[in-house]
Amino acid sequence: MGILEIKGVNKRFGGLQALGDVNLSVAEGSCHAIIGPNGAGKSTLLNCLVGKLIPDTGSVTFEGKSLLGRKPHEINQMGISRVFQTPEIFGDLTVMENMLIPCFARRDGSFRMHAYETITDERAIIEEAEEMLDEVHMLDKRDMHAASLSRGDKRRLEMAMCLVQQPKLLLLDEPTAGMARADTNNTIELLKQIRQKRNLTMAIIEHDMHVVFSLADRVTVLAQGTPLVEDTPEKIKGNPKVREAYLGEAHV
């Protein structure tokens, strides 16, 4: 039994079968990559996990509890955090404030009227946020407006915001999309470090095979909404079916 179990999931958008009978099991502590050509249904699948979409049929369970019908904030409170393809951060706020929000969310739950407390009195929370910022090497940018950060920094901030919640499962949607090679390598190193430090399960959607093969323990190849094969990265590399699915794509 994996920490995340996806069974028989189907999702249609009008005439388009976005997901067809997807079965997937993510083992606790592993890094599971989901790859596939454009339009294979990778993002749809991820959206079904975080409550943004509800599958037509099938079941999604996390630690034995069903995720279907739960709101995004409820799913997050169960221990699932998500990094988006385009970083979703609080642009109007400073880097530090961006970090404090998930810290408070973890401590206080999805809603609390703490209107008479003062943020500056919350030493423990502030230290926690600072430590995490330090871990992603962004402590020197704590007072900058998040919107003015570079794209790579925005991504690192978003990742730090997810990690500071100490999730059990981290979902990454193309964490290196649009990054230069050096940035990509930095991100890979960061994710490796994070995995070493914490017993974190990761599910990662990625186009870049370099990233997949550096990080993943298991790889599922999705094509036209259906899992094609699931195996270790080494075996996936040599699989002719995968080559076929990716025919014409430069990465392989």
């Binding site: 975080v50 709101k71 995004p72 904030h73 997050n76 409170q77 955090s81 998500r82 988006f84 979703e88 951060i89 609080f90 642009g91 109007d92 706020l93 929000i101 998930p102 969310a105 973890r106 739950g109 999805s110 809603f111 915001m161 919640q165």
Partner: peptide
């Protein structure tokens, strides 16, 4: 709430 409600909900906040 003003800045990004989507990120807020994926951060476990209603």
């Amino acid at each position: 709430v003003k800045s990004n409600q989507s990120r807020m909900s994926y951060t476990g906040l209603n």
